[in-house]
């Protein structure tokens, strides 16, 4: 099972000829991800690591069967690339690009919703179902297949926790980076809903951070209807208010977005919130034994 991506996922890479696009196409192919085509306007006819490049998504899809896309297009052109993917009929679009204007993200997320397209990100490391499909920029070797679902707003902190879990013997069903921006596609609640319906996933790890109220919303959902055990770590307990801590979305504004509020909401919902990333695997041992 797993969620969002599996060995049937066939993907295209939008922005495949750029430095990042080309580099990660190679790594995704090495991991075993089925990358069937790439798109860069004006570069149609070329090849990148053996993957044929087209000028438009429609053209790529007329030659290849694909249901997903991963986007490395620079921020000023990212909304256009997402809309192109939606218009061509893709079901899942992973937006790696950072620094997309909020106005653009609001629009592309809305269009995706109206067309039943799943957006992961923006500003995400992507999504991986270990052993089947890596649609993202995460280091593949730190993941191992197993019963833990991971949902996270960050990149390297996720790798920190995932590699701890792998070392402790807890593999992952799917690890999803939902993105560090204020406006994102799939959020914590929607990802939890997906894990609720995934029989392979026995427990979920939620990695949150300051800013917004997505963790509070997740807590409310968990309290009401999520039946699998959840452990969580929230980053930014020492962050000062009003300062952006690296991620566009990691900012305490006024009274909303503090780590304390998130920790409290999650604890009240029965989530095991830990103080140190390393304690997550210890908690899982307790819960799952």
């Amino acid at each position: 099972m797993a969620i969002l991506v599996n060995n049937k996922t066939k993907a295209i890479v939008q922005g495949i000829t750029g430095t990042q696009g080309s580099f990660h196409t190679k790594l995704m192919l090495e991991y075993g991800t089925k990358i069937v085509a790439g798109v860069t306007p004006g570069k149609g006819g070329q090849e990148v690591h053996g993957v044929p490049v087209y000028d438009t998504v429609k053209e790529a899809l007329s030659e290849h069967d694909a249901n997903a896309s991963i986007i490395f297009v620079p921020a000023p052109f990212a909304k256009d690339a997402v809309l192109e993917g939606i218009n061509a009929g893709l079901e899942l679009i992973v937006v790696i690009t950072e620094h997309i204007p909020i106005k653009d993200t609001i629009q592309m997320v809305e269009v995706a919703k109206r067309n039943n397209v799943n957006i992961v990100g923006p500003n995400t490391p992507g999504v991986i179902t270990p052993g089947e499909c890596k649609l993202g920029i995460m280091p593949g070797h730190i993941f191992k297949r197993g019963p833990i679902g991971i949902i996270s707003r960050s990149g390297t902190l996720t790798y920190e926790i995932a590699s701890n879990l792998t070392k402790a013997g807890f593999g992952q069903s799917t690890c999803l980076g939902i993105g560090g921006d204020p406006i994102i596609g799939i959020n914590f609640v929607e990802a939890l809903e997906m894990f609720a319906n995934d029989h392979e996933t026995k427990a979920v790890v939620l990695i949150g951070e300051i800013g917004g109220d997505a963790e509070e919303k997740a807590a409310e959902y968990i309290r009401k209807e999520f039946n699998k055990p959840v452990t969580a770590f929230i980053a930014g307990k020492t962050a000062p208010p009003g300062k952006r801590m690296g991620h566009a979305g990691a900012i305490i504004s006024g009274r909303t977005g503090t780590a304390q509020s998130k920790v409290k909401a999650l604890k009240d919902a029965g989530v095991h919130v830990v103080d140190r990333p390393r304690e997550i695997s210890e908690k899982l041992k307790e819960i799952l034994s």
Partner: peptide
Amino acid sequence: LAYVELEGDIGIIGNGAGLVMATLDMVSL
């Protein structure tokens, strides 16, 4: 570089916003 100055005496550098935030938290802990 994303840099925010704070009041303390332990300089912190890391890669990735979430990891750096967690690093600050560990130091405070």
